[in-house]
Write a protein that binds this DNA or RNA. Structure first.
Length: 856
RNA sequence: GGGCGUGUAGCUCAGUUGGUCAGAGCACCUCGCUUACACCGAGGGGGUCGCCCGUUCGAGUCGGGCCGCGCCCACCA
């Protein structure tokens, strides 16, 4: 490594980032050596950030934590496998591409090799493009973003091996995703099913349970009258979704609710449409809600699905994938009515309308028919949304691929307990989520920019799709895109023809690929030698909000494919919060971009702020802390300069009591920091190191100044050695947190990179100070510092400079402490400019300071 | 409604097994250009440790109950 060639006259932080990033890159400072044995490998399952615009402060925060861990492990002599992935597939990219280029994907449009996006993108009237053209635009945009991301990470000083990047849309990720899927399918762990599925009507795709969130929305409760047995009696139900009355398949009461005994077992007639539906019971009905009677529709919510399944009810679907009411065949099987013509006419008023439009209209119809009791009552209720969506999700029956999860509950809980969680309480979030899972994982998405299912289906003589006999791709073919690739034994022109084939049109859920990051980064099935070295990995760093998605699905896939944990540790980071304790919002994050922060405060300073954030704990965004970090970096520069510039020759051993005591304390700090880092508690490692470092500068360096500048070699021998030992340790202790400034000061006097140097050894330092406790040397340092503090106080209160001479200092203290003070008195009188030090034995510590008169 | 976490000086936070634990930094005030550092140093003011019970000789520190905040979950009637 290049040597800085001695201590500069005026050390500065300016330019260190450019200088050292460039050198690190040239020297391959962070290159992973795959020849290392497995025992010396430390593998990190780096989170691939979503490439959908820009990184924000939260990324800087959590990636810094991981980098501190990576640097620590490297200094422990490990070969750190630290790749970087870009999560570029999926909806965020699609949405960004649509907005950026003013296009929308239409799978029916043919590919145009000469396509150019519109010069003036219009989001109101997007240009329809083919799926291959759309994918090309996605790849173009993500490539640009990924370069910008890499620049930021390098500027932040992440010690990533940049020769090992991957993208979740790349060929490697596609092969691994498809191969895993095919194997799951063969083992029966993946299956296809036509079933009610949670559906986003804007994106027009199925979404998984994990991608849902509740949002409070205003709504209205409508009390609706159902006639019983052709108007002999009536039933009243409350509903927020009257537009689904045509989809009603039953009314339900709780089995113990005697109020409805008369009705149970009879038939009710839906208002407006006159369809007969049974009145049944189910224990899930809450007698406290509404009238105690509930309308079951196919499907208004997830509970409807439970009732429908458990009671064997028929399906009457009225909602289409676009969120509008479908055309339905009144008068045919399943759509019977006591008055078909009226039903058809009234439904005609709703057909084609969106849910909200239909709801407004049906309320009017119910009012006209007299089936609405009273006025709709406004309510606020939690409604399920796709986390990226803008309208509530619906439940639509469709054909989807699933992966078994429910039947693996117990194995997954057991794996969660094998994993070391940092902090430990995060395990509860995992277990809560697993316990609460109600269905298998739906992995199909009706989208475009994702990993396709490597599956085709034969078409029968009538051209109907034979889903029961999927044609699977061979593993050697992967990755395949069934929309353009042709299965074995078929010709391209047979696509879509009777007796021919068709490709599975769907792509995999983004988590279905992200759940394989250890396999992708480790090249599972492609470079088995590498994979065996790195898998299972050592740590998964990630934030707490995606335990239910990324962490959970990764454990699931590893369990299914390898029957073991994908990693040993989970290091969970918190979020960055606004000063008002809300999650840092996108808009604010864009105002304060990470690059601006780095430019204003410097990478080490920003990293300092991040590293002070406790594992798992949300942390306030605080530029003030970055200023503190910058001060620390400057202090390290200056302290290193003091300790190293023109230092007199060092002795063989550290002999002075205060030097030895300082090293003993340092040894304890090293031991503490090491233990903390072993437990992934980078924050306390930094805090304790920093705390001691400031003490070291304020007291130790001041105390030994006299000896350090002493012209006699004997006087300086001990302190020279102690300064070198301590500075060397400090520089390495701070290296995981402040990589740039530590590399700079290290280069002044050492060979090679500090980031490849071995982590300081507490035992070695303790050895150099052996017996410091027993000999009273540690007490000497404590008492000396106590007295120095009193002397400074006296000078400060007398408004005198710190170098002002002191005529006499009387120290009252116990015999033991006074004895110890004697060991450090030479440094004390020098540092305090004390003429006479007078110890007096006493029970309590007290100091009298008599300053020399001020000389004009 | 359930789970987890959190509530300590104006701000950001330390306080490991209950007894110098009432702290640090920032901010504020005062002083000092001392040969590592003025991107500095020295000193100072400032808190009934969310609230209420309890255990204990003694509780930010343990137990119970409230309240606030955050995240996750829950059957949208």
């Amino acid at each position: 490594m290049a040597s800085g060639g001695g201590v500069p006259e005026r050390p500065t932080l300016e330019g260190l980032e450019e200088k050292w990033s460039e050198i690190w890159e040239r020297q391959g400072a962070y290159r992973f050596d795959r020849e290392a044995p497995r025992e010396r490998v430390y593998a990190i399952d780096t989170p691939p950030p979503t490439v959908s615009g820009s990184l924000h402060v939260g990324h800087v925060f959590s990636y810094t934590h991981t980098d501190a861990i990576a640097r620590y492990r490297r200094m422990r002599g490990m070969q750190v496998f630290y790749p970087m992935g870009w999560d570029d597939n999926g909806l965020p990219t699609e949405r960004r591409v649509q907005n950026h280029f003013g296009v929308r994907c239409d799978p029916l449009v043919p590919y145009d090799p000469d396509f150019k996006p519109p010069a003036e993108p219009s989001q109101k009237e997007p240009v329809a493009v083919s799926r291959p053209n759309f994918v090309e635009l996605c790849l173009e945009l993500t490539e640009t973003d990924e370069q910008a991301f890499e620049q930021l990470w390098r500027r932040l000083g992440l010690s990533v091996d940049w020769s090992m990047t991957y993208t979740t849309i790349g060929k490697l990720a596609q092969r691994i995703s498809q191969r895993s899927f095919l194997r799951l399918l063969r083992r029966g762990e993946a299956y296809q099913l036509e079933a009610p599925t949670v559906w986003d009507v804007d994106f027009q795709t199925a979404v998984a349970q994990a991608e849902l969130e509740d949002r409070e929305r205003p709504g209205a409760m409508h009390r609706v009258r159902f006639a019983i047995d052709d108007a002999q009696a009536q039933a009243l139900i409350d509903t927020t979704r009257p537009e689904l009355i045509a989809a009603c398949v039953a009314l339900l009461a709780h089995p113990d609710d005697e109020r409805h005994n008369e009705l149970v077992g009879r038939q009710a007639l839906t208002p407006l449409f006159g369809t007969r539906v049974p009145v049944l019971t189910h224990p899930l009905v809450d007698p406290e809600k509404g009238t105690g009677l509930v309308m079951v529709c196919t499907f208004g919510d997830l509970t409807d699905v439970v009732w429908w399944r458990e009671l064997g009810l028929p399906v009457r679907s009225v909602l289409g994938p676009d969120g509008r009411l479908l055309e339905v065949p009144w008068g045919t099987a399943g759509w019977e009515s006591v008055d078909v013509e009226t039903a058809r006419a009234r439904y005609g008023e709703l057909q084609g309308r969106t849910v909200n439009q239909a709801r407004r209209r049906i309320v009017e119809l119910l009012q006209e028919s007299g089936d609405l009791v009273g006025e709709p009552q406004p309510v606020t209720h939690a409604v399920k949304f796709f986390e990226k969506g803008e309208r509530p999700v619906e439940i639509i029956t469709s054909r989807q691929w699933f992966i078994h999860t429910v039947e693996h509950h117990e194995e997954l809980i057991a794996r969660g307990r094998e994993l070391s969680w940092h902090p430990t309480y995060m395990r509860a979030r995992f277990e809560d989520w697993v316990e609460g899972l109600s269905g298998d994982w739906s992995i199909s998405r009706q989208r475009f920019f994702g990993v396709p299912f490597p599956v085709w289906y034969p078409l029968d003589a009538s051209g109907a799709v034979v889903y029961e006999e999927p044609i699977l791709a061979r593993e050697e073919q992967l990755p395949v895109d069934p929309s353009t690739d042709v299965p074995d034994r078929y010709e391209p022109q047979q696509r879509g023809r009777p007796g021919g084939f068709t490709g599975d049109p769907d792509v995999m859920d983004t988590w279905a690929t992200s759940s394989l990051t250890p396999q992708i980064a480790g090249h599972a099935g492609e470079d088995e030698e590498l994979f065996q070295k790195v898998f299972p990995m050592h740590v998964r760093p990630q934030a707490h909000d995606i335990i239910r998605t990324w962490l959970f699905t990764t454990i699931l896939r590893s369990q299914l494919d390898y029957d073991e944990l994908p990693w040993r540790n989970a290091a969970i980071s918190g979020w960055v919060l606004d000063p008002d304790r809300k999650k840092m919002s996108k808009s604010k994050g864009n105002v304060v971009t990470p690059m601006h922060l780095l430019e204003e405060h410097g990478a080490d300073a920003v990293r300092y702020w991040a590293a002070r954030g406790r594992p798992g704990t949300d942390t306030a965004f605080d530029p003030q802390q970055m200023k503190v970090g910058r001060r620390l970096a400057v202090k390290l520069l200056n302290a290193s300069k003091f300790a190293l510039a023109d230092l007199p020759p060092e002795g063989e051993t550290v002999t002075h009591p205060l030097d030895r005591a300082m090293l003993a304390r340092l040894a304890a700090v090293v031991a503490d920091a090491t233990a903390r880092l072993e437990q992934y508690d980078y924050a306390r490692a930094l805090e304790h190191t920093e705390e001691f470092f400031w003490w070291y500068c304020d007291f130790y360096l001041e105390l030994v100044k006299g000896r350090r500048y002493d012209t006699s070699p004997q006087a300086a021998a001990s302190v020279s050695l102690a300064l070198r030992l301590s500075l060397s340790a400090f520089q390495r202790l701070f290296a995981p947190f402040l990589p740039f400034v530590t590399e700079e000061v290290w280069s002044w006097w050492q060979q090679g990179s500090v980031h490849r140097a071995l982590w300081p050894d507490a035992a070695e330092l303790a050895g150099a100070a052996a017996g410091a406790e027993r000999n009273g040397e540690e007490m000497a340092l404590a008492v000396t510092a106590d007295v120095l503090r009193e002397v400074r106080k006296a000078k400060s209160q007398a408004r005198r400079p710190m170098r002002a001479p002191v005529r006499r200092v009387v120290v009252r203290d116990t015999a033991r402490r006074l004895q110890a003070l004697e060991l450090g008195s030479d440094d004390l009188v020098a540092a305090g400019a004390i003429e006479l030090l007078e110890p007096i034995e006493d029970e309590a510590f007290a100091v009298e300071v008599e300053l020399a008169p001020e000389t004009p």
